[in-house]
Design a protein around this nucleic acid. Structure first.
Length: 184
DNA sequence: CATACGATTGACT
DNA sequence: GTCAATCGTATGA
């Protein structure tokens, strides 16, 4: 079932671990691709590592908008990274989706990625490529009936998620804001 | 206007 | 393990 606006409007440090085991689904022209979220990272207000740290800009405007929307940006001029906007409107926080395990649309994912199954969607740029998330999706409402959505299929989040430092950033990298489902 | 850099990935030694 | 690719954004002249 779909998640509510209030569910997303909680603090990023709460939403990030709660997103684990939720299903990220992309419907494009009737074609479905989906995966179970297994790794996330929280980006907070007044977080030196967050894109919102220096205030609103053209790129990060979605992060200052209402929760439950998708923030997509171009990373290293090549890759796309997808985030879920969280918290009160205007607070500028989000959760980065770092990895999913494929559920539906495996054939299309292999086609898009051209990599071994293990590397289909085990990274923030990889999952966007595998699921077909584009820069056009920046600002997309996850509660809408079309396109990209996040669903609860009844699988509970892990009782004890593995928590660690964030990855691939240069500032405040030591903050324990990275959440991952323990290996089965 | 000019330029340095990044919430990454994939190829290569 | 190391390192180049690649370009929008931010920052400074």
């Amino acid at each position: 079932m779909a998640l509510s606006r209030d569910w997303f409007a909680r603090d990023a440090t709460v939403v990030a671990p709660d997103l684990l085991n939720k299903v990220l689904r992309v419907v494009d022209d009737g074609e479905v691709a989906s995966g179970r979220i297994i790794e996330t990272e929280a980006y907070l207000p007044d977080d030196p590592a967050s894109h919102t740290y220096k205030g609103p800009t053209e790129r990060n405007r979605v992060m200052f908008g209402p929760a439950g929307h998708l923030y997509v940006y171009l990373s290293y001029g090549i890759h796309r990274c997808a985030n879920v906007v969280t918290g009160p409107t205007g607070s500028g926080q989000a959760v980065l989706l770092r990895a999913v395990t494929p559920i539906d649309g495996l054939t299309r994912m292999r086609q898009r990625r051209g990599r071994p199954d293990r590397e289909l969607s085990n990274g923030p740029g990889k999952l966007c490529a595998a699921l077909g998330i584009e820069l056009d999706h920046d600002g997309h409402d996850l509660l809408g009936r079309s396109g990209i959505s996040i669903l609860d299929d009844g699988t509970a989040p892990p009782a004890t998620p593995r928590i660690g430092p964030r990855v691939g950033i240069t500032r405040a990298a030591d903050a324990p804001l990275r959440f991952r489902t323990p290996l089965s």
